[in-house]
Nucleic acid binder design. Structure first.
Lengths: 197, 197, 197, 197
DNA sequence: GATGAATGAGTCTTCATTCAT
DNA sequence: CATGAATGAAGACTCATTCAT
């Protein structure tokens, strides 16, 4: 969409749409959620939606991009200032878990996106960035641990652990974040280093 | 569906539909795949689909159930005859990875299913069974490792590792199964026990 | 349908189909009842249906024709032997009511048939015959009553009374036939003659 | 349907749909008439139909309700101001006949509706109201006539006369309303009172 | 005679999207 | 900016009918 010049009220509307849509998508799924439902939920007409977004698809992509961006910022902030590679990895995992906890709807959206060709590339790109980000820390950590393994595989293993635990325990609220984060960190670090954290 | 009495030809058709549908669903996604596409792919009329299944939804659920059942059999077979808890866990992870490799379409279907309320319960049930299956081996393995942790969290961590690696490396065929399976096993076992395998 | 040569068993099957179909049509309506439902109800395959009837439509027409024929026989039998025109009319009305009571499903089928162009002509033909049958009796009765009215209108008025009462009270079984028949007869005869019966 | 807020144009469209549909339903029957035919007849897209009605069924029910409501108003207006019970009954019958003449399509729709379980209850409710409305007049008329009969039966007899005559003579336009109305009134009143009107 | 299987046109309905006001 | 109205392609599903065995 040709970036429209939005007033403050406009930016607010846009944000509302994104929030409501994320919620609906997460609850019922992307396809089962109609544009009508989204605008009804917000109590506005359908024109509003198409004023801010070119299509339902574009909106979803935007949500995805925002989510990935947000998570990345968060991890970078958490890692900044830490020196020990293992500490950095731990901080990254923990930051991801906290992000997931505070953005629960987005967790399943990302998972869904990976399964549909239309959105899969966005996910692949995001993951590629995440992996690149992580590589330096991980390589350092692996060196420290004396292991000789493929760091990409390790990073993906950690992604798998983190998001599956988030999906399983946080979405239902059956366990506190800290507990889940602790478990994830420990599993990842030992998995990585061969030594219990 | 009230179990219809099927002839041999009928059972064959049913299987074809399941296979073709799995393929289509995996390639384009559940929603974007229409019943019309499925039957066209098979070169039969639309009525055929509804002769064998009550609905597109029922078919999908059936695929899901079949997948879970099949994977479980495979893991049980792989574990049978092993005594050491860690060996058992390793065999389970490896069997899952091999199953994923040989049933690639199903991997993303399962992932998708978890994101849509309509199918999520089927996934939850399947995972609950898998977790229950794994618990005894894991508890024994954890005892051996001297750790005191929540085995359910560990099992889910392992699920996360295994399927995310499968999704990432097997679907695209970018790495051989053995390599991915080795990495998964090693990550899980160290993550579990605190000692490199 | 080219009248097929049926064995005894064949004629029996045919009758069963007609009965089951009448029942289903009456309960759920002609359109909402599928051929599949009819044959399932009878526990036979779909081929059976098309062995005996060319189409669903033909079957329905056949039911209609049978109903009209049957009712006519019954009325003729009831009137035979009576001399007084009013007695004859009364007997005709009463016979119709009894037929309706014993062939409840057919009552609403006839009513439905009148509303659909496809079947309306069959109904029109049947009613024309009924009216022709009745005319002589009615004319005599009207003469006796000293009235000068259009006998066709009177006959249709009586048809209206009889079948609406049948539909209202007999189908639900809320009143005994005799009571309803008495009311119909009295209403018709006084309506006709101007004197209470 | 959650009552949508309609503009004037909207209300007009809605009315057009009801009119066209009544026409089509009456001509070809409810089931044989497809939503596609209705909207084509009106020269609008299919979405228009579902903007105003939740379903074909809902539309039909609405037509039915409107018809019953309209007829009732008409009868009440016709009766208002009359004192003699027999006059009141006569006015009610005559009003019904005139309504039928001016709403010919609706006559067969009502008749059809009574034969399909889905709509039968709406008909039953409407008839119950009509019967209740009529009871007081009829009881008074019956008292005056010195008869001791069940007024409900009488009312249904009159309903039967009126609508069957309407269906038979008005739909085809083979007789003028007045003539048919006269016959109906006379038949009903004598049927009721035992004395020629 | 009878069955399971197959056909495919046609049904109702949904929904992303557009547009006049 | 916003709304109610409109579009129409597409989707899931049905069902009368036919056919091979």
């Amino acid at each position: 969409m040709t970036a429209r010049q939005l007033t403050d009220r406009g930016r607010e509307r846009r944000r509302q749409l994104i929030d409501v849509a994320s919620q609906c998508f997460a609850e019922r799924g992307y396809h089962p959620t109609s544009v009508t439902e989204i605008v009804n939920e917000l109590g506005v007409g359908k024109g509003v939606f198409y004023w801010y977004f070119d299509s339902k698809e574009e909106l979803f992509l935007e949500i995805l991009k925002g989510a990935q961006h947000d998570l990345r910022r968060r991890q970078q902030a958490a890692i900044a200032g830490l020196d020990d590679p293992l500490d950095q990895v731990a901080a990254g995992v923990r930051a991801a878990m906290e992000w997931a906890d505070q953005n629960r709807p987005l967790v399943s959206l990302v998972q869904f996106a990976a399964t549909e060709e239309l959105f899969a590339s966005a996910i692949r790109i995001g993951q590629a960035i995440a992996v690149a980000d992580a590589r330096s820390y991980i390589d350092a950590a692996l060196d420290a641990g004396g292991e000789t393994v493929d760091s990409d595989l390790m990073i993906h293993a950690m992604l798998g652990v983190t998001f599956h635990l988030a999906q399983t325990y946080l979405l239902e609220g059956s366990r506190p974040v800290d507990e889940v984060a602790d478990a994830a960190v420990r599993f990842c670090l030992t998995g990585l280093s061969g030594r219990p954290s």
